[in-house]
């Protein structure tokens, strides 16, 4: 592969990484803690790309110096697939594939995972670390995460949720059996390992899938306990449509 094409692929990839990191779009794919490493990666890619470009330009200026190492005839600045010093190293074509993520980021900009991923899952409530959940912090309503709510409702029989108003933010996932779930995904590393959490919302108007909402309401028994498949129920007192949070994952 030619040096100048190599340089352009590196520069494009560095630019793509810089773009998603700069614009917070990276939060659709990975955790917030990756940010400094992504900036370093973008910087490295751009630096390697720029230096490869300098090499390529020098090479263009002194074409006679391009001498065959492997006995194959090499043109100077006129290219074919056998150019440069890499062709005996099979698979140089593989570098072209690095354009795929670049194109996906610049042209499609895939959004955060949503209702489609949640609806496919069967488990909902992973057993929490502590057997007994501590009491909810003060507040009326109190802000909680979906996984905290589900953990308390399913694995602590809702004891700590009784007589409390809670407020949660998530997106609408239609329930095939009627109504909709309030859902949120959490990631451990990147979106490939996303795990969804769902809560059946009662007393709320029907909303389209993937609408972000803040729901205030109270837990009510009936969703099942002590089972990874249980989906707890929330009786809503208010449902507000909100913009997608900066970090779509929990």
């Amino acid at each position: 592969m030619r040096r100048d094409v190599q340089a352009i692929i590196l520069l494009l990839l560095g630019g793509a990484v810089l773009r998603v990191t700069w614009s917070d779009a990276y939060l659709n794919y990975v955790r917030e803690g990756m940010r400094p490493f992504l900036f370093i990666s973008a910087g490295l890619l751009l630096a390697f790309g720029a230096m490869a470009m300098v090499d390529a330009i020098r090479q263009l200026r002194t074409p006679a110096k391009v001498v065959a190492i492997d006995g194959l005839e090499h043109d100077d600045d006129v290219d074919d697939d056998h150019d440069d010093d890499h062709d005996h190293d099979h698979g140089a074509w593989s570098s072209w594939l690095l354009l795929l993520p670049v194109l996906a980021i610049f042209l499609i900009a895939p959004p955060a995972l949503g209702a489609y991923s949640v609806a496919r899952e069967t488990t909902n409530a992973i057993p929490p670390a502590e057997a007994k959940a501590p009491p909810l912090p003060p507040g009326d309503p109190v802000e909680v995460t979906l996984s905290d709510f589900v953990g308390r409702a399913v694995w602590d029989s809702g004891l700590t949720l009784q007589d409390r108003q809670v407020r949660m933010t998530g997106f609408v996932t239609p329930n095939p059996a009627g109504g909709w779930w309030l859902a949120r995904l959490s990631i451990a590393c990147c979106a490939a390992d996303a795990i969804g959490t769902r809560i059946q919302v009662q007393g709320a108007p029907i909303l389209p899938a993937n609408t972000w909402v803040t729901v205030t309401g109270a837990w009510t028994p009936g969703g099942g306990t002590m089972s990874a498949d249980a989906i707890p129920i929330l009786v809503s007192s208010s449902v507000d449509v909100v913009p997608e949070p900066r970090n779509p994952y929990e």
Binding site: L13, V17, V20, Y26, N28, Y29, V30, M34, F37, L38, I40, S41, L44, L45, L100, P101, A104, I105, I108, P110, P111, A112, L113, G114, A115, Y116, S117, C189, C190, A191, A192
Partner: peptide
């Protein structure tokens, strides 16, 4: 790419690439 399955695939693909790039580097 306005089909949920394709969009999900694209997101997972970009996510693995973004996550792996610093480690590959």
């Amino acid at each position: 790419f306005d089909i949920p399955a394709l969009q999900t695939g694209a997101t997972v693909f970009v996510a693995i690439m973004i996550q792996a790039t610093p480690f590959l580097l």
